[in-house]
Write a protein that binds this DNA or RNA. Structure first.
Lengths: 343, 343
DNA sequence: GCCGTCTATGACACCGGTATCAAGCAAAGA
DNA sequence: TCTTTGCTTGATACCGGTGTCATAGACGGC
């Protein structure tokens, strides 16, 4: 029992009385093998509990089996959903997922990622929003020869390099739902400046108003940053307005929770006095009181599709083109935070 | 520009007019190098943008630089906090984090993980609760020669192999806080059966009652499973009791949110009619209305400590023994979901 | 019975690093 | 001047796989 290290291909070859190459052929399911030899080798492999060394394989093949996940995302639930979706696909392949979060706004962020890419040379990377909107990063991947897929709120890149949801239409639908309920003064809590998702959601809001012939009032549009506290600040501002808005669309659930929080503090009833709609359908949406009407986008499905694009037919995965969809539709989840407008 | 592949150590050696080994010495900061040679090699490295191939290194060194994160944890925020904490430590080293979630309750779970460990042979793994409580898994790691650290609600293993919080004491403190506020009928929503954390939190609850000379009533203790819905079901049951409990300790925030939800549905005021305390201090705790009094445990700090144990002095990290703490204290965060008992 | 073809397997180099050990060379000592 | 010592550097083997090409034997056609 001296050898604590695992057996190598040489051990298998020696014991089975064949060459390394033959063992390699067995492992790689080469078709031109005599049945007897294969069987013998397979027995030895099973007996020794031999497992090929991925590092050696990677070296010889001049490629590896790592998929990177790059994000600067504050939303834990989303990141985890993505991981889960990707791993569902990767589980059946020989790929492993290696995560690489970066600090939002760090000036060395791009260099950080560059270092990571150069060091590991992952086979492919998935890039989550908001950093997925950074075209320099995509260019960097392309330049280094690393496959990439960007996730976004709108088509950001060629089909092969992106999965996107239709935030604009989804928000338009949500705001139309408010309008249909009789609301005319509808507040909007924006996402942070410079975020594509924020811009798309704003456009959706404006489109809905325009189609209904309602004016777009700047006082009803308040800047937020996707955080709870900014939702609270925005709500303070909106609820201070002279004719108070009767409904608010917040660009994510966390800010919607902030709005709800302030409404509570002010003794307003939700939804009777104020209707609220959020975006993301994070768990918090269904846990709040009242449960929040919100927009759900199919994160895990998108993540699976992205993973399929990345490993695309390689690594034994289903080579089908089925998973290659790139545009995904979000849907409005109606709960209890919207009521008909009063008066 | 034909060569799209990155330069290798051979290129550097050839161009600098030295041997591979000398370049290797420069990379590894070997002390016995002539200043001139080193400088020349460093220039060539910089010029070519040479980056050593980690796979080749791993092969030659007969070890790799991967740290695995194994979890079957449903709490996204916690998993992400752990990732973040570990990466803070790993960032300064040459280690990479590779995540491996497993399906709770899958019968092949242990085999899954075994396969992962054998295939990748990570340098070390971090194991999150609840699967960290599985001694077979720890034994498997030990047997395969993979370093491991288990995170738990109580000391699970030797100091070198665990980081733990003091759930029992923390819960005792929380329940004592309720008792001091005059509560006598205090409900407990348990965590799922078989979870160490659930058991520890129950013990904390019982200890608090015992110390205060209060009886432990089985009707006040209701099974949950750490999910929102189970919190709701538990609340239904507790609030149906004839002398209604005036306070509830839920073993995590999500279930506490469920309790709050049901209280709302029944028109009870929280905290006037019912005080609630949760556990974890997830974001939801501060976002709920009223903001939830809860127990916060230092996840990121524990994760950092665990990462330090795993890479322990290797890989250029701070070799200090400072990070080697193993027991971490949780603290009660007092918000607005607890009030003095009425009557 | 000879030759060409096809099949199953092996010998060997190679991927890009590191370890071992020897060798070159300068400074120091005899 | 010759040897000893110490410091720098290089030649070579190796880590554990895969690719290329050669080779041995079976088989069919003439």
């Amino acid at each position: 029992m001296k050898r604590s290290s695992q057996p190598t291909i040489n051990d298998v070859a020696r014991i089975a009385g064949v060459s390394k190459k033959t063992v390699s052929r067995v492992i790689n399911q080469s078709p031109l093998l005599n049945g007897d030899t294969r069987k013998r080798v397979e027995e030895v492999i099973a007996e020794l509990g031999y497992v090929p060394n991925p590092q050696a394989r990677a070296l010889a093949l001049r490629r590896n089996f790592l998929i990177g996940l790059i994000h600067d995302n504050p939303n834990a639930q989303m990141v985890l959903n993505v991981q889960q979706g990707m791993l569902e696909v990767l589980r059946d392949t020989e790929f492993e997922l290696i995560v690489h979060p970066v600090n939002r706004g760090s000036p060395t962020m791009l260099e950080d990622i560059g270092q990571f890419l150069e060091r590991q040379r992952p086979f492919g990377v998935m890039i989550l929003p908001p950093i997925s909107e950074n075209d320099q990063l995509a260019a960097l991947c392309a330049q280094l020869g690393v496959r990439y897929v960007r996730m976004g709120s709108a088509p950001l890149d060629e089909v092969a390099h992106m999965v996107a949801s239709n935030d604009r239409e989804a928000v338009r639908g949500a705001v139309e739902h408010l309008i249909e309920s009789g609301h005319r003064r509808i507040g909007l809590v924006l996402g942070p400046h410079g975020f594509r998702s924020a811009a798309e959601r704003q456009k959706g809001y404006e489109e809905a108003l325009e189609r209904a012939g309602l004016p777009i009032q700047r006082t009803l549009i308040v800047q937020g940053d996707y955080k709870f506290e900014s939702g609270m600040r925005a709500a303070e501002q909106l609820l201070d307005l002279a004719p108070r808005p009767t409904a608010v669309f917040a660009s994510n659930d966390e800010m919607a929770a902030g709005v709800l929080h302030v409404a509570r503090q002010r003794g307003l009833n939700v939804p009777q006095d104020l209707s609220i709609i959020g975006f993301d359908d994070t768990p918090i949406a269904s846990h709040l009181w009242p449960p929040l009407t919100t927009v759900r986008w199919p994160i895990a499905t998108m993540a699976r599709a992205a993973a399929l694009k990345l490993v695309g037919g390689e690594g034994g995965g289903p080579a089908g083109e089925d998973g290659e969809a790139s545009l995904f539709v979000s849907t409005l989840i109606r709960r209890a935070s919207v009521a008909a407008a009063q008066g």
